[in-house]
Simulated scan of single mutants.
Amino acid sequence: MSTPSAVSTSEPGFVQIRHPHEITEDLQRAAAACWREVSDAGGAAGFPFPPVDPQEVGAAAEAIVAGLSPDRSRLLVATVRGSLAGWLNIRRDPHPLVSHWGTLHHVQTRPEVRGQGVGAALMRSARTVAREEMGLEQLHLAARGGAGLEEFYGRLGYREIGRRPGAYRLAPDDDRDEVLMALSPL
């Protein structure tokens, strides 16, 4: 697997990483930098209290890469003009009772590409990878309530299947629901 190549338009391209050895150090650093940028801008991608610690984000990114496996965990990277614009992690639990569905984790796009369709294209690409390559029948995700994410995912066909009220405490008087969403069938 090679690193992302230059894209001649602002249409996103996609790189799928199935094994830890397929990711370059530069791409892994770019993914961690994206995660820091998104988190520091208030994004709901796993680190809620900006500014985030670069070492903590780097270690979390390394753990995701270490767990990559074609059957259980893939990294999907969106690029625009050869630069990382966003990424997400598709995971499947191998237990036979639930192995027909997967979960999206850490869905994010760099703040400077927001509103340009990169996030929606990344989600559509994840759907295709999940269905056609991983053989999944459903995708699930958890979104932070109050951030407009329910509407974003809803436009892509996801529906709310539950909530955990007040699951996230962002500040003493700022509790947010965790919104559970699913896309089925793929």
Results as ranks from 00 to 15, higher is better:
C34M: 10
E151L: 08
V118E: 07
P94A: 13
V98P: 09
D177C: 05
R164P: 00
D177K: 05
R36H: 06
G135W: 13
E25P: 00
G162A: 07
V98K: 13
M123P: 04
D177I: 03
V107H: 03
G148D: 02
P70H: 09
R131H: 14
D174I: 04
H105L: 07
L139G: 00
W101Y: 13
R163A: 03
R92T: 01
T24V: 00
Y158T: 03
Q55S: 08
E37W: 04
P54V: 06
V38A: 15
F152Q: 03
A142T: 06
S39A: 13
S8K: 14
H95E: 11
A143V: 08
R114Q: 11
A6H: 15
R74P: 01
V7S: 15
S5T: 12
A120M: 00
S39N: 06
S8A: 15
P51H: 09
F152R: 06
S5K: 09
V80M: 03
I90H: 08
A6I: 14
E151D: 12
R164Y: 07
M123V: 14
L68M: 13
A120N: 02
H21E: 14
A143C: 04
V77Q: 04
V7K: 14
L122F: 11
L88E: 13
A182L: 01
H106M: 07
A33Y: 01
M134I: 10
A45M: 12
E160V: 11
P96W: 12
A6F: 15
R91P: 03
S5R: 09
I23G: 06
A147G: 02
L76K: 03
M123K: 04
R144Q: 00
A32Y: 02
E137I: 05
L141E: 05
T109W: 01
E62D: 15
R72C: 10
A59L: 10
E112M: 07
I161M: 11
A130P: 09
R92E: 04
R18L: 14
P111M: 06
G115R: 03
R155D: 08
R72H: 13
G148K: 04
T128R: 15
P4T: 05
N89Y: 12
I23W: 12
L136M: 02
V129Q: 13
G157L: 05
E56A: 15
A120C: 01
D173V: 04
G157Q: 02
G135E: 12
P111T: 05
P48L: 13
L104G: 00
V38P: 11
W87S: 11
E11P: 04
D40F: 05
L84Q: 09
A126Y: 06
L68D: 10
L136T: 01
L68T: 10
A63G: 15
H19C: 05
A41E: 09
D26F: 01
P20K: 11
V52P: 01
T3N: 14
E37S: 12
L27G: 00
